[in-house]
Design a protein around this nucleic acid. Structure first.
Lengths: 123, 123
DNA sequence: CCATGTGTACTAGTGTAGATAGTACACTCG
DNA sequence: CGAGTGTACTATCTACACTAGTACACATGG
């Protein structure tokens, strides 16, 4: 079976976070539509070569964020998700932005480039 | 002694990264000027309540990034730093931007808000 | 000279989080 | 009934951050 999304390995982040990001990206960009079947915990672990427990935690995180729905005995499907105005995560986002700005300044990247990169990534 | 920069504790990141960020921010924003004395490793560890080794690693990281200069036997001073076009770190920045965009979309935050937040943080 | 404070370099131990390994149970569907 | 599903445990391993302690070469001021 081929996974309906791709995982790009990046150093510095946990396996869990990387897969959660990849799946989130697929859902948010519409690559995965509401109602689509999400790979089972066991399929996920086999295809990615990770432990079933790790796969389970990934699915649990995605469910908690409202991106997936669980049908016990049946499987997991992509939820008809709503943008969740989670205050805690929003605060984290603001902190991430500040870190991004400081890093960009230190690297000599102008604001315009950063904004352009964001607009490009948004499409 | 009072440190010439403030450290905001944030969960999910290592002590090392937090202090490096705080110091980088101080230098990049001009709060610390080239030639200014940077707290010694021992002062840093005392004021922050961290181990001298951790403080040493922090200083080493800042030196490696060209933000500080070492004067053995004398101390460490803020370097007349140049924006470093480090390709590896620039690639990380691009990856961070993509993650930021996906998170913002999932949280229902419009592009305009993100860009505004960046412009605001840039000042 | 020398005492003090500095950067630097080790070795070692500790605690925590991520990931793995294995097992188990209730559920749904053909 | 049987296969595949989600879910829930406990245990173990490993990597990393952090701590602890010691040591040495250097520069400066008294």
């Amino acid at each position: 079976m081929v996974l309906p999304f791709t995982v790009v390995v990046r150093t510095g982040r946990s396996l869990h976070d990387q897969v959660v990001f990849a799946a989130t990206k697929a859902v948010v960009t519409g690559q995965l539509s509401p109602g689509d079947a999400f790979p089972s915990v066991r399929t996920l672990s086999q295809e990615l070569g990770i432990n079933p427990n790790t796969a389970q935690k990934i699915v649990a995180t995605l469910i908690e964020r409202g991106l997936l729905e669980s049908r016990p005995g049946v499987g997991t499907v992509v939820s008809s998700w709503q943008p969740s105005a989670n205050p805690a995560r929003r605060a984290l986002l603001v902190a991430d932005i500040e870190r991004l700005v400081v890093d960009a300044k230190q690297l000599g990247i102008p604001v315009s480039d950063v904004i352009e990169a964001i607009r490009k990534a948004w499409k």
